[in-house]
Nucleic acid binder design. Structure first.
Length: 640
RNA sequence: GCUGGCGUAGCUCAACCGGUAGAGCAGCUGACUUGUAAUCAGCAGGUUGGGGGUUCAAGUCCUCUCGCCAGCUCCA
């Protein structure tokens, strides 16, 4: 059954204009304007499909939603495109062996094993061959073969990867294959009816990928591509990608002078003055809310004795990611996590059951030796500050405490208007503690989420080595998700460190410990924020909040007076005194995404006014300086 | 770490098949005193990421190394 793909264009698109409130997400707009579609999108989102759903509406960007009724049809189309690509590759490079080639969120890929090393030029040649296959309009034929027949078929073709896959399927299972002309693939489908249906496609990139995702296996060559039902949709998607690249935090970080990465310290970011303003502002918000939620702040050392890490189990389970050093010939380690430090604070004196829960938070700088190839701007670094906290509590307090943590997370994320999804990660292979304890801990997390009403998906085997966890994932500009917040229930550390509290009965008891981080890492979170706001930070966290632009040097003195007045109110303000035309100064302030510009000419100076220009709205005209000051102070306080 | 690609001035990019590095923006200096997204002129800026090699000659070819990018693996 053929279905049409739903496409909606918002914003400045000549053929479809729609008025929306500022700051709404696409989802919110759709919920208002198209309630039926909204339901379909929610369904698509629950399955992890669709793109750009959490994106904010920018003033002049074309934003589209590729989802809805026909998500399945698009999936089939891309899956077929992947087969067409494989067929094209085999025509051009007959010795190529096929591994797997699925449709994915925004396109498709195929993993190939070939003596030939594919180059970007090959991609063009493959695209040309694909176009021929589309032109030939070859029907796709679905067949179900008995297992032995299928094995015989693929062995005959020398398709070793397909044979390996079949051999792992249940013995009595019939095998589903698809044929298009002389091309045969092991495949469950579904597909579109013929290659002619794939009207718009593009091969995007080459990459390596381990066979079956295991680094012990051979590395295959992966070709990524995408396909759409119509050329216009493909073009719109490619345009979207270009726009996303423009908000890459690495690019904006340099342009807005927020941070840098230097060859002298790979993975160790340098925060510049403007980046630090943002960092300090979000830390300030963090402190306010944590104190309101009953946390106490601590700070623990970065270097601690190796014995501590042996006791905590990090030596055994995490050594490969740790940096070591020596002090007076004794072995020490740089902390990769904050828990042991916090535990030492807890253990510094006795605790009564009356004190619990004890919530200790810490902006903890940790170092981890990440693989060089994994480093990525601020998102993946080797030194980062976790906004950590450890909560020690009675076993009976677990559920309520976790609910409270979720509430705090929700509150903070909503200040930034960030969309997130939660995942529950269970016991990994390399884990401490026995199954029963893990079971209890995992259930506690599960119940807390369900009672709070937090939707989540399960990640089997993805927990930390000391306990299960709930992860909060945020999206970057390209829709890649990054784990930020985490709540980990730790039922091993209290044991390892013999943590106790004195109960009502006067006896020692074992507290339960939660390890949690909300931003996850300050670095990663700032990276996410840069992309989320596309560098146009809200007033309250903008590095420079107001820039005063005198038109000539006759206004310099007045400009300085205004600056002093704003500075006194703790507003971040600069004056552009350079001898340049006003258009030039405005342009520069605009490029720097400064929220407010005050244009000062003779007129304003004589009347004690300022001509206010807003980053997004443009010229707002002249107003009394006093009024402006009141308004901006309110806006900052509201964190709007 | 693995596979592939890339590395030229602070930034964005040029330099045919090896012939000895060039532009715009930014910076500095000067002129202009300017009304809502780039005023004009001049100056300065690079051992082409680093080491080694091939060659009469290397930004260009080979090699080692460092870093970056995409993906894999891993993870906040």
């Amino acid at each position: 059954m053929e279905k049409e793909m739903i496409k909606i264009s918002f914003a400045v698109n000549p053929d479809y204009k729609i008025e929306v409130e500022k700051g709404l997400t696409i989802l919110e707009i759709v919920a208002q304007k198209a309630p039926k579609l909204y339901k379909l999108i929610l369904a698509a989102k629950a399955n992890g499909k669709g793109i750009g759903l959490g994106d904010r509406v920018e003033e002049d960007s074309l934003i589209q939603i590729f989802t809805g009724a026909d998500e399945e049809g698009l999936h089939a189309l891309r899956h077929t495109a992947s087969h067409i690509m494989a067929q094209a590759v085999q025509r051009l490079f007959p010795d190529t062996k096929l591994a797997i080639g699925p449709a994915i969120a925004n396109g498709f890929y195929y993993d190939l094993d070939s003596a030939h090393v594919f180059t970007p030029d090959d991609l063009t040649a493959i695209e040309t061959e694909m176009a021929k296959i589309v032109e030939e309009d070859i029907p796709l034929v679905h067949e179900i073969l008995p297992r032995d027949k299928a094995l015989e078929l693929f062995s005959g073709l020398g398709a070793i990867y397909k044979v390996e896959l079949i051999n792992e399927l249940p013995e009595d299972m019939p095998i589903s294959i698809y044929r298009q002309g002389d091309f045969i693939d092991l495949c469950a489908g579904p597909h579109v009816s013929s290659t002619g249906k794939v009207k718009a496609f593009k091969l995007q990139s080459l990459a390596g990928a381990y066979w079956r995702g295991d680094e012990k296996n051979k590395m295959l060559q992966r070709i990524y591509g995408t396909a759409f039902a119509k050329k216009t949709e493909l073009d719109a998607y490619l345009k979207l990608l270009e726009e996303a690249a423009a908000r890459d935090h690495r690019k904006l970080g340099r342009e807005l002078d927020l941070f840098s990465l230097q060859d002298e310290g790979p993975g160790f970011p340098f925060f510049h003055p403007h980046g630090m303003v943002i960092r300090n502002e979000i830390e300030k918000l963090w402190r306010e809310l944590h104190f309101a939620f009953g946390y106490d702040e601590i700070k623990t050392p970065v270097i601690l004795s190796r014995d501590l890490w042996i006791q905590s189990g990090h030596w055994e389970h995490y050594r490969n990611n740790m940096y070591f050093t020596e002090i007076d010939e004794a072995p020490y380690a740089i902390k990769p996590m904050n828990c042991p430090g916090c535990i030492l604070v807890y253990r510094a004196h006795h605790h009564s059951y009356r004190e619990l829960p004890i919530r200790m938070c810490e902006m903890g700088l940790v170092h981890r030796h990440e693989l060089s190839g994994a480093l990525h701007g601020l998102m993946r670094v080797r030194a980062f500050t976790q906004d950590d906290a450890h909560i020690f509590m009675l076993p009976g307090q677990i559920k309520d405490e976790i609910k409270k943590v979720i509430e705090l997370f929700d509150k903070v994320y909503s200040v930034y208007g960030l969309k997130y999804h939660a995942e529950l990660s269970t016991k990994p292979e390399k884990a401490m503690g026995d199954d029963a304890i893990w079971e209890v801990a995992t259930e506690a997390l599960r119940e807390a989420m369900e009672e709070y009403g937090l939707k989540y998906k399960v990640n089997p085997g993805d927990g930390a080595f000391y306990g299960p966890k709930i992860d909060f994932h945020l999206e970057d500009s390209l829709g890649r998700t990054w784990q930020c917040g985490t709540i980990q229930l730790d039922m091993q550390m209290p044991e390892k460190f013999d943590l106790t509290y004195i109960g009502e009965d006067g006896q020692k008891h074992r507290p339960v410990m939660i390890h949690r981080a909300l931003y996850g890492s300050m670095e990663r979170f700032i990276g996410i924020l840069i992309e989320h706001y596309a560098g146009a930070f809200p007033l309250w966290m903008a590095p420079v909040q107001v820039k005063i632009l005198p038109i000539t040097d006759r206004q310099t003195e007045y400009a300085q007076k205004l600056k002093e007045a704003l500075f006194k109110e703790k507003i971040r303000v600069t004056v552009d005194e350079r001898n340049e035309k006003i258009g030039y100064k405005i342009r520069e302030a605009q490029v720097q995404k400064i929220p407010y510009m005050l244009v000062i000419g003779d007129k304003e100076m004589e009347e004690g006014k300022v001509a206010v220009r807003k980053r997004k709205e443009g010229d707002l005209g002249a107003q009394d300086f006093a009024n402006f000051l009141t308004a901006i102070k309110n806006e900052i306080a509201e964190k709007a």
